[in-house]
Simulated scan of single mutants.
Amino acid sequence: MIANAVKSLALKGVTGLLLAGVLNMPLAAGAEVTEVCDLTFTGNIELLDVPVARTWAQQSKGLSYLDDVGPGMLFAYESAGTLSFWMRNTWVPLSIAYLGEDGKVFKMEDMQPDSADYHLSEQPAKYALEVMQGQLERKGIALGSRLENIQCRAKR
C-alpha cells in the first residue's frame, strides 16, 4: 500500500515536470521579439524603437527577467479584448497604458516589481504599452492621448 502511494507520488512528480517543460517550450522557443515600432501619439509625442510583442510566447515573456526595459514594450493583439497583466519575474517598476481599437489611452496604472497582483484593462483593449514607471507622464502621454501612427520594422 505504501509502495503504491510512493509510486503514485513519484509518477505525479515526473508528470508535473514533463508538463511544465512542455508548457514552457513554446515560451522559450518563440519568445524572442523580432520587431520594433516607432509610436506617434497626439501632440507629436514619439516613442522610438519600442519592441512589439504579437505572439503568445512574446506576450507571456514580456519584460520579465530584465534589469533594463529600455523603451518598454508594445503588446499588440489581433482584436480588442479585456487584458490582464501581472509583474511576476519583472524586476523593475513599470507603468502600463491600455489603448482601445481607436488608439485612445483609456486606462493607465503603475505596477510594482515581482508582484502577482493583476492589472486589468476593464474594457476591451487592442494594445497595452508598458514602460519604465513614470515614463508615460514624462513623455506627456495621458488618459485621452491617441496613438496616431505605428511604423514597425524587423529588429536588427
Rank of each mutant, 00 (worst) to 15 (best):
G62C: 12
K126Q: 11
H119R: 11
V50F: 11
P71C: 12
V50W: 06
L120H: 15
E46K: 14
L120C: 12
D117Y: 03
G30W: 08
N89S: 07
L120S: 12
Y98F: 15
E101P: 12
R54Y: 04
G30Y: 14
D49K: 13
E101H: 10
P124S: 10
K107P: 08
S84N: 14
D38V: 11
G81V: 11
K104F: 07
G103H: 02
L94N: 06
V33W: 03
D117V: 14
L83P: 09
L27Q: 10
P71D: 12
K126C: 06
L23I: 15
A28T: 13
T82N: 14
L48F: 10
A97T: 14
D102F: 07
G62F: 06
F75L: 03
V22K: 04
S64G: 09
Y65C: 07
L99Q: 01
G21E: 00
M108F: 04
Q112I: 06
Q59S: 10
P71S: 15
C37T: 05
Q123G: 01
V69Q: 00
V52C: 08
V22Q: 00
G43L: 02
Q58T: 03
Q112Y: 02
P93Y: 01
M87K: 01
V50P: 14
T42Q: 12
L17G: 10
V69R: 01
L17Y: 05
N24C: 11
R54A: 04
L19D: 09
L39M: 15
D49F: 07
D38R: 05
G70F: 02
Y118K: 15
G43K: 01
L99P: 08
S115H: 02
A116P: 11
L23K: 10
Q59G: 13
G30A: 08
D117A: 13
P124I: 00
I45F: 01
G16Q: 07
V131W: 00
A97K: 10
A128C: 02
A128N: 04
Q59C: 11
L48Q: 13
D114K: 05
K61P: 06
M25Q: 12
K104L: 12
K126L: 08
G16R: 09
T34D: 14
S115K: 00
S84D: 01
L19V: 15
M111C: 03
V69T: 14
I96Y: 06
E32G: 08
D110T: 13
T82D: 14
Y98G: 07
M132T: 14
F75Q: 04
V105Y: 00
S60C: 05
L94H: 06
W91C: 04
